[in-house]
Design a protein around this nucleic acid. Structure first.
Lengths: 121, 121
DNA sequence: AATGTCATTAACTATTGGATTAAATAGTAA
DNA sequence: TTACTATTTAATCCAATAGTTAATGACATT
């Protein structure tokens, strides 16, 4: 439904970017710190951060207004909104879950062995 | 963390596949029905369904054991597990949220106008 | 048996995505 | 000013993804 869910999920679909999220979950960090922590070149990380920015999952802050400010560094921090939106979508999907689960269980009792879950898992 | 989160998020990142999920959320449906509902060719939908299958988000069922069974049709239904896993990951990220939010608000009061959220939103 | 239907796979094309190196931008420090 | 640091952008390459039409497999219908 939400148009932005697309960008959010696309951003989170990449393991590197999820790792960044997990790092930022603890505290805001500098771009270079994130690159180093992910054993990744600066430019590569920069592109990932651009994607995360565009999706609204993170925001950047310049170090101005700080006691020992260095205007070169960019500090990234997590933004809550997209996560909340994703939660909302998941809740909406799972709102139908109880009946689905009932139907599933009822069915599974009858024809469980004909269920096919794909070739690769 | 979970290796499968990758496949789950990659699968859900596509709008067509999310649409399928939203359709299946109501009830199980046949492959052809999903293709028609998404105004998409059969083969294209088939590929999407393969991705959804591989990620464990859906499973297929043959129509055997049914009163008016037609062995050609495949009925797809939603699987709960990956959604639960995703919920768990989100919860884990948001467990750190209260402090983050506090820090964010405190900071925002001081330097809100220097915050930059990306060029395209 | 012959023809039509449901769904998937194959083969091909176009687009997107991530990684790299090199260059640019902006700022610090000697 | 000159050299060094932090980060982003540019140019390029390769791999992965999504769509199309045509072909195939398996079954249904007459």
């Amino acid at each position: 439904m939400s148009k932005n869910l697309d960008a959010t999920l696309a951003a989170l679909a990449d393991p590197t970017r999820r790792h960044v999220v997990e790092l930022l979950r603890e505290r805001p960090r500098r771009a270079g710190e994130l690159a180093a922590a992910s054993a990744m070149s600066g430019p590569a990380m920069s592109r990932h951060l651009r994607v995360l920015r565009a999706s609204g999952l993170v925001e950047v802050e310049f170090e101005e207004e700080q006691v020992d400010h260095d205007a070169r560094v960019r500090v990234y921090r997590l933004c809550p909104e997209p996560f909340v939106d994703l939660q909302a979508w998941l809740d909406q999907v799972q709102a139908f879950w109880s009946n689905q689960l009932d139907a599933f269980k009822t069915h599974a009792e009858r024809t469980h062995e004909h269920t096919y879950r794909g070739e690769d898992r």
